[in-house]
Design a protein around this nucleic acid. Structure first.
Lengths: 342, 342
DNA sequence: ATTCATAAAGCAATCGGTTGCATAACAAAC
DNA sequence: GTTTGTTATGCAACCGATTGCTTTATGAAT
């Protein structure tokens, strides 16, 4: 345990005041550039590192950004986090990460912790339980910016970063229609969440436009787990008239469902064409490879973090841009490709 | 922006000194328990929240734990992080997470940042580039505890948390031998890292014990990516005498290799029996499902975090336990099961 | 020579808890 | 009645950086 070097030590060595040292290290204009050079190099020589706590205490700023996500152990979320980490790190901010495990209760606790940690801003993807943003009121009152990404609710105080899930759901369904599907089923997640509700809307819209059948029998809301995929396959097998197209709001669930369908003798894509969502690595593992919507996780993380940081640095007024829409891609692979290419 | 409640405000309202308030809130024995009750309830009533920066500044302690991992976007690592987050959160600590992207250069930078953030302790899984722990010297000098998990190096200053990779590699290989394999190939990752080097040793040991052929032709060191899996499949196809058993140090890579092998006409497990590593979700997606070593990610995260916290709270002397070994399981599935069960 | 503007640096208060040491109050012991 | 001990509380310095205001130095303008 060795004593830390402080600006006082530097000041003493150079016969200057701590105030001057502090200003020099922060590149304050009132300091002679010559003096700055001397101080900076001395600081380096002495191995000085600023004490963030003293600084934060004084400035009422922490250079820390809080992140609350539903689960850390999801392929998608970890790419988002990777993107955030990248940006944040480059801008000299820190990340405090916590997970709500899809429970509003834990989300509330996490929000409290973040508040106590005095984060400068918050990046949140809502749990499936969450109904409103009341637990973030403390942040709104203090003017701490909140950006919602992926799982969002519309609210005027905060910016949303999403893809156009309705359109994506629409595109996925249209693609199945173009492959000749006449009876398309959709498996969605919790309809409390925009991502799933919107995709469902897009699906319905596409069916409507093409006069295809829909309704309860063809719409299943699940938790999109592996088991749900198996259950859906069993359900399909029992149907008097099984679907010839299947759009699942998650690759992982789609893939487990495909496995079970194949076991039951369905041929993919000929009996049933399948489209997933997220471009999860598993989509390339299954045979046939899975058609899916590529979801720009890394990019979403980067943009969310960058927007927040820009806002904090006064480079961007968040309230001006209420929603940022990212592009997605429909990636067509074997699980849906019936029409032969010329 | 509203003013924060401080201990001074509480003190004023109750006609007490800030010192007493501070002690009461920290449950100091010298304070009358009656006074404590009064202060605590007043604090609650006024909506007081401690200012961590003032506290940290004074105590030289941050209640923050730093984590450096190779990649955030890996299934295994996100379960580890989930486990850490869980424990840390319950113990009122915070997590600062960063990724080295398998580069020693970034790992060094991350370590610096963690040091500047004055983390109370560090949990690290090394990048594949890392040769030694010199970049953590600042931590050792200051007595800040460092726990290495999964990707470790032996060093007396720090605790390691790992599974017995050698034994796991041995077990995986023995399993293939039991299934009748006579010519077993092993695909490993960077041999600089214990996890891969040890599994290779275990593999070699098993071969040796059973007098089976090994050597360069049957040992491939790769980055264990999807592409590497495809390359290995191509390599196998070109071999004059292809192996009849394949042990790959990563499920993801194993799975992509299996896909390519199937395409090339190999039957699994009959022509080639395959064992992976990690029990990644994809292992259940591939057909046949993949035999693998279950790697307790969540548990590893929990134990690493808990050990560190216990040490910080003086409940456990880390130096006493230099290595913690976790249990793993060989999960036998279709990709290797040749012997019919009675 | 005097006044004034400007640049550069210092003084000292401040952020909000924490903690070693002193003090006060009161009871028990001598 | 004085001493000693115990318990509960207060005083004030401290952690280290920041910043409004003041001071000093320097040169230009009058």
């Amino acid at each position: 345990m060795q004593k830390e070097v402080t600006i006082y030590d530097i000041a003493k060595q150079l016969q200057l005041s701590p105030a001057t040292v502090s200003r020099a290290l922060n590149d304050h204009p009132a300091i002679n550039s010559n003096t700055k050079t001397i101080i900076t190099s001395k600081a380096l020589e002495m191995g000085y590192r600023s004490n963030m706590f003293a600084s934060n205490l004084r400035r009422q700023r922490t250079n820390t950004i809080g992140v609350i996500v539903p689960r850390l152990d999801s392929a998608f979320m970890s790419t988002v986090l990777a993107g955030m980490e990248k940006v944040v790190n480059e801008s000299n901010y820190n990340l405090i990460i916590s997970q709500s495990l899809e429970s509003i209760k834990k989300e509330v606790t996490n929000a409290k912790t973040m508040f106590d940690s005095r984060v400068d801003g918050l990046l949140v993807s809502l749990s499936s339980d969450t109904e409103n943003l009341d637990h973030f009121n403390a942040f709104f009152r203090k003017g701490i910016p909140l950006i919602l990404f992926d799982r969002v609710v519309q609210q005027k105080n905060c910016t949303n970063i999403v893809i156009d899930n309705l359109k994506a759901g629409y595109d996925a369904t249209i693609h199945l229609i173009e492959q000749g599907c006449k009876r398309i089923m959709h498996v969605s997640g919790s309809l409390k969440r925009n991502v799933y509700a919107d995709r469902l809307k897009g699906y319905r819209l596409a069916l409507l436009e093409h006069g295809l059948p829909g309704g309860d029998e063809l719409e299943r809301s699940t938790n999109l787990t592996r088991q749900d995929g198996l259950d859906i396959a069993a359900y399909i097998k029992r149907m008097p008239t099984p679907p010839d197209g299947l759009f699942v709001s998650s690759d992982f669930c789609a893939v487990s469902c495909m496995g079970a369908l194949k076991q039951s003798g369905f041929s993919i894509p000929n009996d049933i064409a399948v489209v997933g969502f997220n471009n999860d690595p598993v989509s390339l593992v299954i045979d046939p490879t899975l058609t899916t919507i590529h979801y720009p996780g890394q990019e979403m993380g980067e943009i969310a973090a960058q927007s927040l940081i820009n806002h904090l640095n006064g480079l961007l007024r968040l309230s001006a841009t209420n929603t940022i829409l990212l592009n997605y891609d429909l990636i067509v692979r074997g699980s849906s490709q019936r029409v032969k290419l010329a």
